[in-house]
């Protein structure tokens, strides 16, 4: 399917065609992104014993992600109701995990912040609980997308896998930056992990595109918009080209020369790519037409590949 065959009807409620999901855009991408990189930073910092990184990770989740969610909600004052439906809703589960991560993470870090009265065993137990919660925060938005049956592009287990590995990548990137910035011991393995994760995420993004051919028409239509339509520059140029290709090159330079500047630029390109992968996937979320679509009738409104 080519992008020029995709009839997107935008906000019209009286014309048959693919409808863009119009609701989740910048703010939800920001909330997902900050949750991913914050929890990822906490996890990787925990694994490498970098308490400063773990603390920054908690701040990103606690302040950044929370703020993005609250700004988005229609009734933010009812925010606490979000935990009610944990049995069926991944949003509930994710937000509960977020609360656990913050509480357990703060207790875990308390000793490092000078609260020496906190027993060692408590620090260990809360650290483990925080790590489990961090993994849920890293992955839950992928499950939220997977559960959205109305948007078939997202309705695949590739989404939680993508969320998990992008979160790990973002966490690794930021851990490298915090290490370099704070003068902490640099773990050479982290740079190689970064390269491996970049390659893996490249493969996962490729799989989303390639597997679309075997899936329903709405998925093919969405992928056509991503690869040959209005989102192509953002998706292929920024998310894939800059975010994966550019970052790979810069991390390679950093490993070869030990350049901190190259590492810093790599962090920017990587985080940009991360944000725009999910932004593009959200923006091309298409709902299928109520009935199989007829061929567009020339000159009668249904404009190819463009919302109206």
């Amino acid at each position: 399917m080519s992008a020029t065959n995709v009839v997107v009807i935008g906000r019209s409620q009286f014309t048959m065609g693919y409808r863009h999901q119009q609701e989740w855009s910048w703010l939800i991408t920001t909330a997902f992104f900050l949750g991913n990189v914050g929890a990822g930073l906490f996890l990787v910092s925990y694994a490498t014993g970098l308490s400063l990184g773990a603390g920054i990770g908690l701040l990103i989740v606690g302040v950044g992600k929370s703020a993005a969610h609250l700004l988005y909600l229609g009734r933010p004052e009812r925010f606490l109701r979000v935990i009610v439906r944990w049995r069926t809703s991944w949003i509930s589960r994710g937000l509960i995990a977020m609360g656990l991560l913050l509480v357990c993470g703060v207790v875990y870090l308390a000793r490092y912040l000078g609260a020496s009265f906190v027993p060692h065993d408590v620090t260990v137990a809360f650290g483990v609980a925080a790590v489990i919660a961090a993994v849920v925060v890293m992955v839950y938005d992928g499950f939220v997308l997977k559960a959205s049956r109305g948007t078939p592009l997202w309705n695949t287990y590739l989404m939680p896998v993508l969320a998990l590995f992008y979160a790990l990548l973002g966490g690794t990137t930021l851990t490298l930056v915090v290490q370099a910035g704070s003068g902490a011991t640099t773990h050479a393995q982290l740079e190689w992990l970064e390269i491996a994760l970049l390659a893996l995420n490249g493969v996962l993004v490729g799989l989303v595109i390639v597997t679309a051919q075997a899936r329903q028409a709405a998925v093919q239509a969405a992928v056509a918009l991503l690869t040959r339509g209005p989102m192509t520059r953002v998706f292929l140029g920024v998310a894939v080209g800059l975010g994966i290709g550019g970052t790979l090159a810069l991390v390679g330079v950093s490993i070869a020369t030990g350049s901190v500047a190259a590492l810093a630029v790599a962090a920017v390109t990587d985080l940009c790519g991360h944000f725009f992968v999910f932004f593009s996937l959200l923006r091309v979320g298409l709902h299928p037409p109520l009935r199989p679509l007829p061929q567009p009738v020339a000159g009668h409104g249904a404009q190819a590949g463009v919302s109206r």
Binding site: E23, L73, G285
Partner: peptide
């Protein structure tokens, strides 16, 4: 709460 998950 107006999260719009249901709309999506």
């Amino acid at each position: 709460i107006g999260c719009r998950a249901c709309m999506v």
